[in-house]
Write a protein that binds this DNA or RNA. Structure first.
Lengths: 139, 139
DNA sequence: CTAGCTGCAAAGACTTTGCAAAAGT
DNA sequence: ACTTTTGCAAAGTCTTTGCAGCTAG
């Protein structure tokens, strides 16, 4: 019986999944990194915690977390799958040249969100507002 | 000397590229389909116009159009690369279950766009506002 | 104990590239 | 003519899967 204070771990266990070393390593990485990590980054960071961690398990664990609606895949300016927490909004500026990402808050999508939910009879769970352009350094 | 009224074709020629049957087929597909097409869809539609068209040429032509800043890659809810015209805004609702996409207009990002451009010294070229959730049919 | 989980390596899917032939200008 | 472009097939990259052994509960 592994004990942990992790919120994600509790939810995994509640859903009937085992808390293995691999899964706990992945979860710890996700909980300590607010960025949008991809599989490679999760694997690299996870191996520092649990060196035996394999790539296939990272793929399978993230698939599981997405199924449980705890995380959500995100695609920025390339086909790399990244992960963000499943709820709320995500707002960034993406540089088309160098790929740099700047986060911002306070987008005003809530009002629009309600209007669209009604008009399309759509249950909105999260949103993404992305501005593309050229950053300071690349100009 | 191939003649065409196509706007995209003019721009390609002006940039010093040859107007081949393959390229004209790809361009015609893009100009007659407002949706966000992926490579497969462009290939399939292009073959109806120019049956000899190959997959590699579709990849190369789209790469070219992106380089010339005429199109822009877009990633929705999967790693498939799709293409949209390079300017302006794009707004949709994406269903996480079935992948259905609903377009809408009138997002109010212009004001925010100006604020961010100034704050981050960023040259904004286009934006994407995407709401994720569950559509009418999947509920 | 026993079902679920893991790592490995092989298979699969998608994208890119080298090259000789073909085609636009 | 001469260079760019094309189609093909091979190579490359990323993701998924089958399987035998391992582990949490």
């Amino acid at each position: 019986m592994i004990t942990t204070t992790s919120d994600l771990a509790q939810k995994l266990r509640q859903a009937g999944y085992k808390l293995t070393g691999s899964r706990l390593a992945v979860i710890e990485v996700l909980e300590t990194h607010p960025e949008h990590l991809d599989h490679n980054q999760i694997l690299a960071a996870g191996k520092k915690i649990y060196p035996h961690l394999s790539r296939a398990t990272v793929y399978r664990t993230m698939e599981l977390l997405v199924e449980l609606d705890l995380f959500r895949p995100l695609y920025l300016s390339d086909p790399t799958q990244r992960f963000i927490s499943a709820s709320g909004g995500h707002h960034h500026l993406v540089c088309s040249k160098c790929g740099a990402i700047f986060e911002f808050e306070n987008c005003h999508a809530d009002q629009l969100s309600r209007e669209l939910a009604e008009k399309y009879n759509f249950e909105i769970r999260s949103h993404l507002l992305e501005f593309q352009g050229i950053c300071q350094n690349c100009r």
